[in-house]
C-alpha cells in the first residue's frame, strides 16, 4: 500500500476545501437554517410530535443526512471530474498507485469534507432546537459510513460524467428525490401503506432511519437492517469502482 500517495492525494484535495472554506460552509449552514425556519418553525409548529419527539428535533438527523449525502457526492464527483476536465488525470494514471489508493485519497477527502459540514450543521441545529443524542457512537458511525458510501457514489459519477451538466444530473435527478422521499422530514409510518412499501426500496430510508435511531432511539426499520443496507450499498459502490479501474472505463484507453 502506497500510503505516501494516499496522503498526498488527501492533502491536495483537502487544500481545495480549505481554499474555499467560507463558501463551503456558508451555503450548508444557511440552507439548514432556512429549513429550520420553514419546516421547523413555520410548518413544524402546526405538526404534533412525531413518535414522542418534537418536529423541529425530529428533522435534525434528516437534515444532516440530506446535506451530508449531497456534499459527499458533489465533493467526490467534482474531485475526480476536475482532473479529468483539466487534464491533470495523466499524473494519477502514470503514478505508481492502484485503484484502491486513488479511491482512498479522493473518497477519504470528500468524506472528510462532508463530515465536517455535517458536524457544523449539527452544531447549528443546537441553536434552533433542543436535542439529545442517545447513542453518540452509533451516530458517528452512521455519519462516517454515509459519508464514505456516498462519496464512493460521487466518485463513480465523477468518472462517468462527460461534462458539467452530467455531473449535476445524477445528484439532481436521482439523489435529491431519494433523499427527500427517504424520510428526511417525516416518518415512513406517516405514509399510506402503498408508499410505505415503495419506500422500502429506497436505500436512503435505511440510512436516515438508522441515523435517527442513534439520536432518539426511534426508527422506521430495525437498526440491524439499516446497517446491512449501508454495508450493501458501500459494497456495491466499491465493486463498481473496482470494475472501473480494472477496465479503465472512461479513464484509460
Amino acid at each position: 500500500m502506497n500510503w505516501t500517495a494516499i496522503r498526498a492525494i488527501y492533502v491536495f484535495e483537502m487544500a481545495r476545501f480549505f481554499r474555499t472554506m467560507a463558501q463551503s460552509l456558508i451555503s450548508p449552514v444557511l440552507s439548514t437554517s432556512l429549513y429550520f425556519v420553514v419546516f421547523g418553525a413555520a410548518i413544524g409548529s402546526r405538526i404534533q410530535e412525531v413518535e414522542g419527539v418534537s418536529y423541529g428535533a425530529f428533522i435534525v438527523p434528516g437534515l444532516i443526512m440530506l446535506t451530508v449525502m449531497t456534499q459527499s457526492i458533489s465533493n467526490a464527483s467534482f474531485g475526480i471530474y476536475f482532473p479529468k476536465f483539466i487534464g491533470t488525470i495523466y499524473e494519477l494514471l502514470s503514478a505508481p498507485v492502484n485503484f484502491l489508493e486513488i479511491v482512498m485519497g479522493y473518497v477519504g477527502a470528500a468524506a472528510t469534507k462532508a463530515m465536517f459540514i455535517g458536524v457544523i450543521i449539527l452544531t447549528t441545529s443546537f441553536f434552533f432546537v433542543d436535542i439529545q443524542i442517545q447513542n453518540p457512537l452509533a451516530m458517528i458511525a452512521f455519519l462516517v459510513l454515509t459519508c464514505i458510501s456516498f462519496a464512493l457514489l460521487g466518485f463513480i459519477i465523477g468518472i462517468w460524467a462527460g461534462n458539467f451538466e452530467q455531473l449535476q444530473l445524477v445528484p439532481l435527478l436521482i439523489v435529491t428525490p431519494l433523499v427527500f422521499l427517504g424520510g428526511s422530514f417525516y416518518s415512513i409510518s406517516m405514509l399510506p401503506p402503498v408508499w410505505q412499501t415503495i419506500s422500502m426500496f429506497n436505500p436512503v430510508v435505511y440510512l436516515i432511519s438508522g441515523f435517527r435511531w442513534a439520536f432518539f432511539g426511534i426508527s422506521d426499520v430495525s437498526i440491524g437492517t439499516s446497517l446491512m443496507a449501508i454495508a450493501l450499498f458501500t459494497a456495491l459502490c466499491l465493486g463498481a469502482v473496482w470494475w472501473i479501474f480494472k477496465t479503465g472505463w472512461r479513464i484509460r484507453q
Binding site: N2, A5, A15, I86, A95
Partner: peptide, 18 residues
Amino acid sequence: EPFEKVINTVRFSRGLFG
C-alpha cells in the same frame, strides 16, 4: 490545477509517486 500554489502541486507529485 489553476488555483493551487506552485510548491504544493510539486509536493503533491512527489508524494503521489511515493
